[in-house]
């Protein structure tokens, strides 16, 4: 391997994260869960909608986190999987009159397959090259959705309007609140499954590949299989997030799933802390609320203000929310002594 190649493949290396540092302690998890369950009872519908979006993007960031933080592969193409999931749900709901809850597993399975297939050629690429290949996928997706061939189902540029589900069993809650709790339940399920996945044999195989591919294969890990599997799992979860997003926003259109979304998700992962799953929700909050804050500071320079804020975060806490959490943990431990 030449020196130049070395530099390129080394550059995006992810710092190894010990397994137990990937999750939160039980106590903290319960506090966060209680906050997520109770908060909607005290706020307006609009805030509930924002919290739903927060969870949805958190799921998408979590998916990317499994791929990058877990198996060490890069992707700027998550928006494509998100779009496929969103369209799958929307098309099934509007054209096949399927129940919204049933469309999510289908969206997940289709995206898993899509990600798994895309993972095959991606095997030959690593580091920045893989990032570029996935980037191509993200830029191609909005145009593919506009193709006349699919227009009967996708609605072309016009997109599809999705009907928002009412709360079932005559529960006395608004559509927004029901959708929030529904999303929360799905998110918790996927979060627990992801944590268990990373703690399992497969998770250890992912991390072995991330840390050293050659060593992993020497230990008997099927590198090709696990790399594509990571892509599939990540795409599947992103697809479920996309489906939920379509239901919450009540609309899908090609312009909603551009490369900007992929970059936002990537940003969310870095801000939340690469490889730290609970950071996904912090990263998601960053990509939803910080642009609004930036706009509040200056309308004309909102992009620049956002840039400055992002720069500050990366400069002060390069490991994102994980670092902040560690510092807090250290302080609490000190207080206890």
């Amino acid at each position: 391997m030449s020196a130049a190649e070395d530099v390129v493949t080394e550059a995006p290396a992810v710092e190894a994260v010990p397994k137990r540092a990937m999750t939160l302690g039980l106590g903290t998890s319960l506090v966060v869960l209680a906050a997520l369950c109770l908060a909607p009872l005290f706020v307006k519908n609009f805030i509930i909608f924002q919290m739903t979006m927060l969870l949805i993007y958190a799921l998408a960031v979590l998916a990317l986190n499994i791929l990058t933080g877990g198996s060490g592969q890069f992707s700027l193409g998550q928006s494509a999987f998100y779009a496929v999931g969103a369209y799958t749900s929307a098309i099934l709901m509007e054209h096949a009159n399927m129940n919204y809850a049933l469309t999510l597993p289908i969206a997940g399975v289709i995206c898993f397959a899509f990600g798994f297939i895309f993972g095959q050629p991606a095997l030959r690429l690593s580091g920045v090259y893989l990032a570029l290949a996935t980037f191509a996928l993200a830029t191609a997706m909005p145009q593919l959705l506009k193709l006349g061939f699919f227009e009967h189902w996708t609605g072309g540029v016009q997109g599809l309007v999705v009907t928002k589900p009412d709360a079932p069993f005559g529960l006395p809650m608004s559509q927004d609140m029901w959708l929030y709790y529904f999303t929360l339940a799905v998110s918790i399920g996927i979060y627990i499954a992801s944590v268990n996945l990373l703690k399992s044999r497969s998770g250890r195989a992912f991390m072995a590949i991330r840390d050293n591919e050659i060593a992993a294969s020497a230990m008997g890990v099927d590198v090709a299989l696990y790399k594509t599997l990571a892509f599939g799992v990540s795409a599947g979860i992103t697809g479920v997030a996309g489906g939920l997003g379509a239901i919450a926003v009540q609309f899908v259109a090609p312009d909603g799933y551009t490369i900007t979304l992929a970059i936002s998700l990537f940003l969310g992962m870095v801000v939340g802390g690469v490889g730290w799953l609970p950071g996904s929700i912090v990263g998601s909050a960053f990509i939803i609320f910080v642009p609004n804050i930036a706009e509040g500071i200056s309308k004309g320079l909102s992009g620049a203000v956002f840039g400055v804020l992002l720069f500050l975060v990366i400069f002060l806490v390069p490991h994102g929310a994980r670092q902040v959490a560690m510092i807090a943990q250290g302080l609490i431990a000190k207080l206890k002594n």
């Binding site: 519908n45 805030i47 909608f49 979006m53 997003g245 609309f251 909603g256 900007t260 979304l261 309308k299």
Partner: peptide, 22 residues
């Protein structure tokens, strides 16, 4: 009161709901 939607439909929904409800 004017907000940025970045020409993205999901953001448009969020911002319009903010305008109406908040």
């Amino acid at each position: 009161v004017t907000y940025d939607d970045g020409y993205s439909p999901p953001k448009a929904v969020e911002q319009v709901r903010k305008l109406v409800e908040s």
